[in-house]
Design a protein around this nucleic acid. Structure first.
Lengths: 146, 146
DNA sequence: ATCGCTGCAAACTGTTTGCAAGTGG
DNA sequence: CCACTTGCAAACAGTTTGCAGCGAT
C-alpha cells in the first residue's frame, strides 16, 4: 500500500536519477517512520548513520521525491512548517494524532456530493480538496488515561 | 456573519487591549478584504494609509487577534506560509480560488458519518478536522475562457 | 501617570542558490 | 568519462525578540 525503499529507488533509476548513499539514507529514514517528519528531523535521523550529509542535500532530495509523487507534504497540525510523509499511491487523506504525530491514511472520503453542491452553489470549478482529521490515537488515549 | 470592525474593537476593549491607530488600520485592512492575506500583504495595505507602521506591529496584532479568535490562519494553497482571514463565528471551512485567492466560507460539511466511521475503524478519538476545497471561481474561469 | 504599545535593529529559523569538488552509471 | 550530485558558504525570506520612547486610558 505504501511505497517501500525498493519501489522508490526503482522509480528514481527509471527517471534517470542516480542512487547515491545519501538518497538511499533519506529514503530509508522516511519509509522507516510512521510519523510526519520535518526536513530537520529527517536530517537528524539520516545524520546518525551518515554524519557527513548536508541539510541542503535533504532539501534537494525531498524536492525530487515530492516531484515524483513518492512522498507528500502536509501543512496541518498547528505549526506551519512543511511536514513530509511517505505516501500511498493516489488520492488519500490523513488522520493525525495530536499527541504522538502518527499519521494514518484513508482513501474513501465521500465528498463528491458536497463537492457537486458547492460547485453549483458557489459557481466554482473544483479541482481538489484537502481533508485532515485530528484526534488522539488509541495508544495515546490509553497512555493519557493511566 | 463575519466580524466587523466595531465588533472586533469592542472585543479588544473588553479584554483590556488598547485601540491604537495601528490596530484600527490593521483590523480595517483585514475586514475590508475578501481574500486571504499574508502578513506582508496586510503590512503593504496598512502602510498606504499609515506609512510609519512597522511590520512587527502587524505580526503582534495578528497574533493578538488570532488569540482572541477574531481572525484565523490557514495553511493550504501550495505555499506553506500562513494566511489570514477574518473569520465567521464557529465551525467553518474554506473554498479557495487557486487563481485569485478569493475565499468563500461554508459551514455545512456533513462529515459526521465519516468521522464516526474513522473513529471506530482506526480507534481514534477525533477532535476536529480541516477541510478545504480548491478550484477556480466563476470570475477567473470566465477570464481564462476569453 | 501608568502600563501597554510601537518601531527600530538585530537575532533567529527555515529554505534556496552559486560553485568547486566528488562520484555513480 | 561526464553529467549529475554533494557540501560548503552565503544569500534570502519570514518571523521573533530586546529595548527605549511614545501614547491611550
Amino acid at each position: 500500500m505504501l511505497y517501500n525503499v525498493r519501489q522508490i529507488e526503482s522509480t528514481l533509476r527509471q527517471r534517470g536519477y542516480k542512487i547515491t548513499p545519501q538518497r538511499r539514507a533519506i529514503v530509508r529514514a522516511i519509509t522507516g517512520c510512521r510519523e510526519h517528519l520535518t526536513p530537520a528531523e529527517i536530517y537528524g535521523r539520516v545524520r546518525r548513520e551518515h554524519p557527513g550529509i548536508g541539510l541542503v542535500t535533504v532539501y534537494r532530495t525531498l524536492e525530487t521525491l515530492a516531484g515524483l509523487g513518492l512522498i507528500c507534504e502536509t501543512h496541518a497540525g498547528g505549526s506551519c512548517r512543511s511536514y513530509l510523509v511517505r505516501r500511498p499511491a493516489g488520492h488519500h487523506h490523513h488522520l493525525i494524532c495530536s499527541d504522538c504525530g502518527t499519521v494514518i491514511d484513508f482513501t474513501d472520503c465521500d465528498l463528491a456530493g458536497l463537492e457537486r453542491r458547492l460547485a453549483r452553489e458557489k459557481r466554482f470549478r473544483i479541482s481538489g480538496h484537502l481533508l485532515e482529521f485530528v484526534g488522539q490515537c488509541r495508544t495515546c488515549r490509553e497512555a493519557a488515561g493511566i
